[in-house]
């Protein structure tokens, strides 16, 4: 699931740095919320489709990646049609569809490391306000990305083991061992992170000291 990340390529979007892409996406998404005209929204949808295609992804690949959001959008459109009216349904589907396509284009053209760096920069203002530690917050997010495949794998292994004991349907039998392992692992993980010299030299302050 999370493997549907960046795809290497040489398109214009691939060569654009992460920050302007994310900013552009945010601006486009916000702007679309002030547009209700169907013609304009349809044009935006087609343009977004063209942007998504410009990354080198085929229509089939885009369809595969966006299947989940498409289902949600379809259900929503239907609900709006039934409960409000057809015009609202068309507006919502075109608007959210265009945004989903643009977001997808940014996602497939940006590497995780780049995203992490942008994140750290985004956290800086919050750090200045004393809300968080940007370096630590960025590492936490990167760690989560690193561990998703491992936890998914662990969950599958636990499910198989429980199935052998006749507990395949039990959510408790899956989640309890998963949580216990996570708590135990966090201790070893913290040791390893500290052993590797974290936090970085320039970021060391009295509040960073462990325990």
């Amino acid at each position: 699931m999370i493997a549907a990340l960046a795809r290497p390529g040489t398109s214009a979007l691939h060569r654009t740095p992460a920050a302007p892409k994310l900013l552009g996406l945010a601006v486009a998404a916000t702007a679309l919320f002030f547009v209700d005209h169907h013609g304009l929204l349809a044009a935006a949808f087609v343009a977004a489709l063209a942007v998504a295609r410009s990354t080198g992804a085929s229509f089939a690949a885009i369809g595969r990646d966006l299947r989940g959001p498409a289902v949600v959008l379809a259900v929503l459109g239907l609900a709006d049609w039934v409960m409000v009216d057809r015009a609202t349904a068309v507006t919502v589907v075109l608007r959210l569809g265009a945004i989903a396509l643009l977001a997808h284009a940014v996602t497939v053209t940006t590497s995780t490391a780049e995203l992490g760096e942008v994140l750290e920069r985004l956290f800086r203002p919050a750090e200045r306000l004393g809300l968080l530690d940007a370096t630590r917050a960025a590492l936490t997010v990167t760690l989560a990305i690193r561990f998703v495949p491992l936890i998914v794998e662990e969950a599958r292994a636990i499910r198989e083991a429980q199935a052998a004991r006749g507990l395949e349907g039990s959510i408790v039998a899956l989640v309890v061992p998963l949580m216990v392992r996570v708590i135990v692992r966090s201790e070893a993980l913290a040791d390893a992170i500290d052993a590797r010299g974290f936090p970085p030299e320039h970021a060391v302050s009295s509040t960073n000291e462990r325990r």
């Binding site: 549907a4 990340l5 994310l22 919320f33 949600v72 959210l96 945004i99 977001a103 994140l119 989560a144």
Partner: peptide, 27 residues
């Protein structure tokens, strides 16, 4: 952290949803 992952465009929500679109979406 999960929300940050969503913002980064990773398909981390159920049904493979992710990306900034979710932030302005109905849910």
């Amino acid at each position: 952290v999960v929300i940050a992952l969503v913002a980064l465009g990773l398909p981390v929500l159920s049904g493979g949803r992710g990306g900034l679109a979710v932030f302005v979406g109905p849910t």
